[in-house]
């Protein structure tokens, strides 16, 4: 897998180098420190790092057989890869999103640039392998990097099979997911006793309950954390986009609201990766801006939370 990763890293760096020549403003140094390298996070317990900003596909990639929109989403995915992204997260629950990702990967010939994460979403606990295989066919992949039990649906049976699959080398990492703050007590219990590589949960500047228990537990247990709903389903933009950024935002490496929300998340030491979703190339560029530059420190994070509450 080391060779595979090196190739991916080469592609990322090659893309970044080309991009830096064309878009110097993207890499504008606001903090006085070198900022060309993407912010990478080590997967706990593994000799592998992933970019701290990934991509979700909920709603945005469910476009059915609309060729015009498939081509447009392909451009979004291309922008994501060009700006150094690798982690793409999906689920069989998301309608045609898996097919659209597969079509886009084919168009971009980018199967080796992706850290592919999907979920097992079926109440039939004997269907784990079949569901993973079906998703693999839709994405056009032989195997996924990460398989997660979606919203704890049938988690006991699925997790047992996923552990076997990992032992057999059929998947590299396994995990569980929740969203919207659901079933956190049960989620914590599973984190305490199961050998998970990743958990996926909702965390953003307003939904911070996970700071109390789940994020410290992930650190303690050496579990990677993927953060969904970083923009609270877009409502953070609707609420705050018309407001000015705080005057000190530049000091924290922040130049727009997308970076504000995302850097708040990925600056938490327990967080491995945030997975914002978008259907627009321009928004993808803004999101990927959070992958570069300085990150807010603990004091600045507190000021960010206070500022949002004050608006």
């Amino acid at each position: 897998m080391a060779g595979w990763f090196s190739r991916r890293q080469f592609l990322i760096n090659a893309g970044l180098a080309g991009l830096a020549l064309k878009s110097p403003s993207l890499f504008a140094n606001t903090s006085g420190t070198p900022s060309l390298s993407p912010i990478m996070r080590q997967i706990p317990g593994a000799n592998e790092s992933i970019p701290a900003i990934g991509m979700g596909t909920w709603i945005t990639f469910n476009v059915g057989g609309d060729e015009q929109l498939v081509a447009q989403r392909t451009r979004v995915l291309k922008t994501f890869f060009d700006l150094g992204g690798t982690v793409v997260d999906g689920s069989p629950m998301y309608g045609t999103a898996a097919d659209v990702i597969g079509e886009a990967l084919d168009s971009l010939d980018a199967h080796d640039r992706i850290f592919a994460a999907t979920k097992i979403w079926t109440g039939d606990e004997s269907e784990t392998r079949q569901e993973a295989a079906r998703s693999g066919r839709r994405w056009g992949l032989d195997q996924f990097d990460l398989l997660q039990v979606h919203n704890l649906l049938g988690w006991q049976g699925h997790l047992e099979t996923l552990k076997q699959m990992k032992a057999n080398g059929e998947v590299r990492y396994i995990g569980i997911t929740t969203s919207h703050g659901r079933r956190h007590r049960e989620f914590a219990q599973i984190m305490e006793r199961e050998p998970l590589d990743f958990v996926q949960l909702t965390y953003n500047v307003l939904d911070r309950e996970v700071e109390n228990r789940l994020l410290p537990l992930a650190q303690e247990r050496g579990i990677g954390v993927i953060v969904n709903r970083p923009f609270q389903g877009g409502s953070l933009f609707r609420r705050f986009q018309s407001e000015p950024l705080p005057g000190w935002a530049g000091e924290a490496g922040i130049s727009n609201w997308a970076e504000f929300f995302l850097k708040f998340i990925i600056s938490h030491p327990a967080v491995t990766c945030a997975i914002p979703a978008t259907s627009k190339v321009e928004h993808m560029k803004e999101n990927m801006g959070a992958l570069y530059g300085a990150l807010p420190d603990a004091d600045q994070r507190q000021r960010m939370a206070d500022y949002v509450r004050s608006l």
Binding site: W58, I59, G64, H180, R182, R183
Partner: peptide
């Protein structure tokens, strides 16, 4: 209780642009 924690929005898996394009 889990079902009640979902909002109507969680069951609409597509955006207005995609729907109107139909």
């Amino acid at each position: 209780a889990d079902w009640l924690s979902y909002s109507l929005q969680d069951f609409v898996m597509f955006g207005p642009q995609v729907f109107l394009r139909l």
